[in-house]
Computed example of a mutant assay.
Amino acid sequence: MNTTKIGWIGLGNMGIPMAGQLITAGYSVTAYNRSKAKESALKEMGAEIALTPAELLEETDVVFVMVSDDQAISEIFGGEEGLLQAKTSDKIIINMSTVSPKISKEMAGRCRDKESFYLDAPVSGSVKQAETGQLVIMVGGEEEIFEKVKPILEKLGKLAMLVGSYGAGNTAKLAINSLLALYAQGLAETVVFANQNGIETADLLNLINNAAIGNIFTKIKGDAIIGDNYKAAFALKHIVKDLGLAKDEGISSPLAKTAYETFKNAEAGYGEEDIIAIIKALK
């Protein structure tokens, strides 16, 4: 049994399997989620439940946060019963959410004022990688704190890398997700073009996946297109948010601008579906 007490906030599609990995690894995990119905799944795995973020931080050593956006981070940290209201110090808070570098820098400073420590550590990968501990984790913050928690991060991912100071992990994630958007739109446009000219989707994807341009993404999302399966592993609305954050950070290249407009226009109709549902907007 690992003696470090873990707190987990955010039990969405990624949060539940990631927290479950830590329970399986022998850590004592206490969870908090704004939507109480989702807490039962982790409780069945053996987790304890805290009533507030502040209580969670007081009862644990390292707290992971995995929520949707900057607003959620502001509420979790700065709310009336938020993490920053905890009467404690020397705790480590690891924010794994895909949020702006700006808010990470702000929360790092506010944690420092409370004599605790902050890392931004967003992940690359989807539900399957979360379920198997094969995520890629990019971290911003102090090297000493990163080294302390690296063994825990390695239970969640196949690679945990410190890429810079506060906010650097978020910047790296926005860069990767910008490429993800280009992959998705490029694959969708390629399939649409081929179909318009009489090429079957399955035949085209067989060619792609046996060529140098094939990769895990084209295989997984190609299978989704063939199976007409657009259940969200990574919802299209989230890539709109991430491209918007990258835009706010200064990305202005031609492909990035085009992808943002394409996904933004598709969000109303397909936002709750998987990112590769962009193909339906392009047809």
Rank of each mutant, 00 (worst) to 15 (best):
I213V: 14
I94F: 06
D203V: 14
K264R: 15
F77V: 05
D248H: 10
S124L: 13
G82K: 01
K247T: 13
I279T: 02
M107V: 10
A211S: 15
P53L: 05
G164L: 03
L182F: 12
S68W: 11
V136S: 14
N209C: 03
E147R: 11
D228G: 05
A86Y: 05
G78E: 12
T171C: 14
F234W: 05
E144R: 13
E249V: 11
M96C: 12
K150A: 12
K105S: 10
P254Y: 11
S252Y: 06
D248R: 13
A168N: 10
T3Q: 15
E147L: 14
D69I: 09
A184V: 07
A233E: 14
E142C: 08
Y32G: 04
L162A: 04
S74P: 08
G167P: 03
L162P: 04
L84M: 04
I145E: 02
E154H: 05
V149T: 07
T98N: 06
S89R: 11
I275W: 08
V149W: 07
K280H: 01
G7F: 01
A181W: 02
K173E: 00
D113E: 14
E131N: 04
Y183G: 01
P122R: 06
I239W: 00
D61S: 10
L84T: 08
I73V: 15
A72V: 11
G227H: 04
L11D: 07
S40T: 15
I276Y: 03
F64P: 02
I23C: 05
H238A: 04
V139P: 03
Y118R: 08
A246K: 07
E154Y: 04
G82H: 05
S178T: 15
K221Q: 01
